[in-house]
Simulated scan of single mutants.
Amino acid sequence: MVEMESVTVVTTDGVKLSTRIFKPVDLATDYVVVLVHPFTVLGGFQGLLRGIATGLAERGFRAVTFDMRGAGRSSGRPSLTGFPEIQDVVAVCKWITDTLSPVGIVLVGSSAGAPIAGSAVDKIDQVTGYVSLGYPFGWASSILFGRHYKEILKSQKAQTIHYGHQGWLHKR
């Protein structure tokens, strides 16, 4: 059994983010997993990560999903580059730190959410690790997200990047 609570998190620039906390019946750890959804411009929203969040909560983890600016019930407008959305990740993690008092936060980004989450890793002291699912590579994604690559590659925090059917790119 998993309990879900909905809250609104406000960013420093006033965007209201629709956020969901998936709570386990039996808490196995004081870490919180934050899931960052795919590209809003192409239809990404937090509901795409509900299955992963539920699965994590069933295994004793608190999991948090949220709609980045312009997605779902969140206010604001999405960007093409993902840079304003980094503020969304930071705001949610700050809210988690202030409200849930975790030992640490693990960021999990899916598709275009992976470079956005990766760019936020070193902006949040409480983030202890990063997992990328389907990190977008290639010519088109390098135009949109290429400036995000260096942020995660320079980070010394624990990380695993999985892209497509090719396997693991980087593991620290």
Results as ranks from 00 to 15, higher is better:
Tyr130Thr: 01
Phe45Gln: 13
Val36His: 06
Glu5Met: 13
Ile143Gln: 12
Phe83Ser: 06
Thr8Ser: 09
Ser155Cys: 03
Tyr130Cys: 03
Gly167Thr: 00
Tyr31Asp: 14
Ala28Tyr: 07
Met1Tyr: 12
Tyr163Glu: 05
Thr81Ile: 06
Gln87Thr: 15
Ala91Gly: 08
Phe22His: 08
His170Asn: 08
Ala158Ile: 04
Gly167Pro: 04
Pro136Met: 07
Val25Ser: 10
His162Lys: 06
Val131Pro: 01
Val127Gln: 09
His37Gly: 00
Ala28Phe: 11
Lys123Leu: 15
Tyr31Lys: 15
Ile124Asn: 07
Val121Trp: 07
Met1Phe: 11
Leu80His: 11
Ile161Cys: 03
His170Lys: 11
Asp26Cys: 13
Gly44Ile: 00
Pro78Val: 01
Val7Gly: 00
Ala114Pro: 01
Leu48Glu: 14
Gly113Glu: 03
Arg77Thr: 12
Gly109Met: 06
Leu169Glu: 06
Val92Ser: 06
Glu58Gln: 14
Ala91Ile: 05
Ser155Phe: 03
Val121Ser: 08
Gly134Asn: 07
Phe137His: 10
Lys94Glu: 14
Gln126Phe: 07
Lys123Asp: 15
Ser119Phe: 04
Ser141Ala: 15
Ala57Phe: 05
Met1Arg: 10
Gly167Leu: 04
Pro38Asn: 11
Trp168Tyr: 14
Phe145Asn: 02
Asp122Ile: 00
Gly134Val: 02
Thr128Met: 11
Thr54Lys: 13
Ile105Pro: 00
Gly129Pro: 02
Cys93Pro: 01
Ser110Met: 14
Asp125Cys: 04
Ile96Tyr: 11
Asp30Val: 00
His148Lys: 02
Arg59Met: 10
Gln87Pro: 04
Asp30Ile: 03
Ile96Arg: 05
Pro24Thr: 08
Gly109Ile: 04
Arg50Trp: 15
Ile96Leu: 05
Thr54Gln: 15
Arg62Pro: 02
Asp88Pro: 01
Ser110Phe: 14
Val7His: 05
Pro78Ile: 01
Ile96Val: 11
Thr65Leu: 03
Asp13Tyr: 10
Arg172Asp: 10
Thr11Arg: 05
Gly60Ala: 10
Met4Val: 14
Lys23Thr: 13
Leu48Gln: 15
Gly167Met: 01
Val15Cys: 02
His148Pro: 01
Pro78Met: 09
Val15Ala: 10
Phe39Asp: 09
Gly164Thr: 06
Ala114Tyr: 04
Gln46His: 12
Gly109His: 10
Pro78Asn: 13
Thr29Ile: 02
Leu42Met: 09
Lys123Phe: 13
Met1Trp: 06
Leu144Ser: 07
His37Phe: 01
Thr65Arg: 05
Thr54His: 13
Leu49Asn: 10
Phe39Thr: 00
Asp122Asn: 15
Thr160Leu: 15
Leu133Gln: 07
Ser18Val: 02
Val106Thr: 12
Ala140Leu: 15
Thr81Gln: 05
His37Pro: 04
Ser141Lys: 07
Ser132Phe: 08
His165Gln: 13
Thr54Cys: 05
Asp13His: 14
Gln156Arg: 13
Thr99Ala: 09
Phe39Ile: 00
Lys94Arg: 14
Ala158Leu: 06
Val2His: 08
Gly118Asn: 00
Trp139Tyr: 09
Gly14Ile: 05
Leu169Thr: 00
Ile152Leu: 10
Phe61Leu: 00
Arg62Met: 15
Tyr163Asp: 04
Leu100Ser: 07
